[in-house]
Amino acid sequence: MIFRQLFDRESSTYSYLIADPDTKTAILVDSVLEQVEHELKLLEELNLTLKFCLETHIHADHITGTDKLRQLTGCEGIVPTNAAVNCADSFIQDREIIKLGNIEIQAIETKGHTDSHMAYLVNQDRVLTGDALLIRGCGRTDFQNGDAGQLYDSVTNRLFTLADHILVYPAHDYHGRTVSTIGEEKHLNPRFKARDRQSFIELMSNLDLSYPRKMMEAVPANQGCGKV
Rank of each mutant, 00 (worst) to 15 (best):
Q106V: 08
E217V: 02
I108F: 04
E45F: 04
R195N: 10
R213Q: 14
R70N: 09
T129R: 01
Q144P: 07
S12P: 00
D153Q: 11
G224T: 01
F160N: 03
E185S: 00
E96A: 10
N47I: 13
D61I: 08
D153K: 01
S11M: 09
H172G: 11
D196G: 06
D125R: 09
T13G: 03
Y14W: 02
V122R: 00
H38W: 15
A119S: 10
L6F: 15
H187I: 10
K51N: 07
D22N: 07
D20F: 11
E39Q: 13
V168H: 02
M1F: 07
D89A: 10
V79G: 01
K68N: 03
K214T: 07
F3D: 10
P212N: 02
D153L: 13
K68A: 07
M215H: 10
L209D: 14
Q198C: 10
D125Y: 08
I63C: 00
I98A: 02
N189V: 12
G137W: 12
R177V: 03
Q5M: 01
A88I: 06
Q35M: 11
R4F: 12
I2T: 05
Y120G: 03
Q93D: 03
E55S: 11
L151Q: 07
N102Q: 12
A171C: 11
I27V: 09
K51H: 03
S11W: 10
G112E: 05
K214E: 04
D22E: 15
A148V: 01
D94C: 04
D208Q: 12
S12W: 03
V228S: 15
N222H: 08
V168T: 03
T81H: 06
K41V: 12
L17A: 04
Q150C: 01
H62A: 09
L42Q: 04
G137C: 12
A132N: 10
Q144R: 01
A171Y: 03
D115I: 13
P212E: 00
T81R: 00
L33A: 07
L207F: 02
T23G: 12
I182P: 05
E37N: 13
Y14H: 01
T161Y: 14
I98E: 08
V228F: 13
I63F: 04
G224N: 07
A88V: 02
K227L: 11
H57E: 10
T161H: 10
Q150F: 05
I78N: 00
L42C: 01
I97T: 05
F91V: 02
A132Y: 12
A19Q: 04
Q198I: 14
I135G: 00
T156A: 00
L6C: 01
L43H: 09
D61A: 05
S199W: 08
G130D: 03
N102F: 13
C138K: 05
A60F: 03
R177I: 06
L42T: 01
N145C: 10
V79T: 07
T181I: 13
H113S: 15
H57V: 14
E202R: 14
S12T: 02
N145S: 06
D147K: 00
E76C: 12
L42G: 01
K193Y: 13
